[in-house]
C-alpha cells in the first residue's frame, strides 16, 4: 500500500474509533488489509456489520480498514499476494449486538463492481463509476456519484442517491427513497415508503408504490417515457411547461390539475377521474395510474426544493 493510502487508512481508522456510547463498551480490534486488484474487479462483501463506507479511488488496489468485534469472524482473500485479482470476496460474521459496532471502510478502483449485503447496516458509497449492488434489511444506504449500474434494496432502511447513474433500480419496503439527480433508465419502488425524485433528467422511468406518496420533479428529456403506479399513495407530479403528454387516471380518487386550466373528467367507468393532456410535440410522456390515491399535476417551475 502506498504511503498516501496508509495515511488515509490511519485517518479513517482514527475517525472510526469515535463510536456512539452504547457501542463503546463493545471490544473491537482493528484490521488493515490491502491487495492489488484489476481496474474493474468485482468486490463482494457480506455479513453483519454496523457500517460500511465504500470509496472509489484512482488506484488499481483495494484497501480495507476495519474495526471488528473480538470474536467475530472476518475472512476473505483481501491479503493474497500475486497478480491483481479480478475478484475479492469477504464476509464478517458476528452476533447481532456485536455486529452493530463493526465498521468497515473499503477503498476500491473507481470502475470496480461492488456487491454488499448486510443485515442492519448503514452503507455509504461514493466515487464509484462501475457497478454498485447494495442490499440491507435495516439501516440506511447513501450513494453519491455516477455508477454505471446501481441497484439498491432495503427493507425498512432509507435510501438516498445523489448523482447520475446510467441504470438504476431502487427498492424499499417501508423505507423512504430520495433521489437527487438523473438517469437514463430508472426504477424506484416502495411499499409504504415515500419516494422523492428531483434534480436531473430522466429518459425512462418506472415509479411505483402501494401506499407510499410519490413526488416527482425530474426534467425528462424529449421523448422520455415515465410510468407511475400506486394503489393509494398521493402522486405529486411536476411537469415541464413547454411540452408533455400526460395520461392520468385514478379509479376512485381525485385528480388536481394545477398544470393546465382543464379540469379532470369523470372516468369512463364512472368511478374516479381521468385526464389527458398534450402540449407541444415529442415531449416526455407521463402515464399515471392510481387506484384510490390523489394525483396532483403541477408545472415543474412551481416545484420548491
Amino acid at each position: 500500500m502506498r504511503r498516501s493510502a496508509v495515511v488515509a487508512a490511519f485517518v479513517a481508522l482514527a475517525g472510526m474509533t469515535a463510536l456512539p456510547s452504547p457501542l463503546a463498551a463493545q471490544k473491537l480490534r482493528s484490521e488493515e488489509h490491502g491487495r492489488a486488484v484489476t481496474a474493474t474487479a468485482s468486490i463482494r462483501i457480506s455479513g453483519s456489520f454496523g457500517s460500511l463506507r465504500v470509496i472509489g479511488w484512482d488506484r488499481d488496489s483495494l484497501a480495507l480498514v476495519a474495526l471488528v468485534p473480538y470474536g467475530a469472524r472476518f475472512e476473505g482473500n483481501f491479503d493474497d499476494k500475486g497478480p491483481p485479482a479480478s475478484g475479492v470476496k469477504m464476509f464478517l460474521e458476528a452476533t447481532e449486538v456485536a455486529a452493530a459496532a463493526a465498521k468497515l471502510e473499503l477503498r476500491v478502483p473507481t470502475r470496480a463492481r461492488v456487491w454488499a449485503k448486510g443485515s442492519v447496516s448503514n452503507i455509504e458509497a461514493s466515487g464509484i463509476t462501475g457497478g454498485l449492488d447494495l442490499n440491507v434489511v435495516g439501516g440506511s444506504i447513501r450513494v453519491s456519484g455516477n455508477p454505471r449500474e446501481l441497484t439498491v434494496e432495503s427493507m425498512d432502511g432509507a435510501i438516498t442517491v445523489t448523482g447520475a447513474p446510467e441504470w438504476m433500480r431502487l427498492k424499499s419496503a417501508t423505507g423512504d427513497i430520495t433521489f437527487h439527480g438523473g438517469c437514463v433508465d430508472g426504477g424506484i419502488s416502495t411499499i409504504s415508503g415515500a419516494i422523492h425524485a428531483s434534480g436531473g433528467s430522466v429518459e425512462r422511468g418506472k415509479i411505483e408504490s402501494v401506499t407510499g406518496p410519490i413526488v416527482f420533479a425530474e426534467s425528462p428529456v424529449p421523448g422520455a417515457a415515465i410510468d407511475f403506479n400506486t394503489h393509494s399513495g398521493r402522486i405529486e407530479l411536476y411537469i415541464p411547461r413547454k411540452f408533455a403528454e400526460v395520461d392520468a387516471a385514478t379509479m376512485t380518487g381525485t385528480i388536481e390539475n394545477g398544470y393546465t386550466s382543464i379540469p379532470a373528467i369523470t372516468s369512463r367507468d364512472k368511478r374516479g377521474q381521468e385526464i389527458g393532456i398534450g402540449i407541444g410535440n415529442g415531449g416526455p410522456r407521463y402515464y399515471v395510474r392510481s387506484f384510490k390515491g390523489t394525483i396532483v399535476l403541477r408545472a415543474l417551475t412551481d416545484f420548491k426544493k
Binding site: 443485515s119 442492519v120 434489511v137 435495516g138 427493507m155 419496503a173 411499499i191 402501494v210
Partner: peptide, 16 residues
C-alpha cells in the same frame, strides 16, 4: 426485525 418488516409490508400489499 426482518420478519416484522416483511409481515407489515405483506399486510399492506395483501390489503391492496
Amino acid at each position: 426485525k426482518t420478519v416484522a418488516t416483511v409481515n407489515q409490508s405483506l399486510r399492506i400489499v395483501d390489503s391492496a
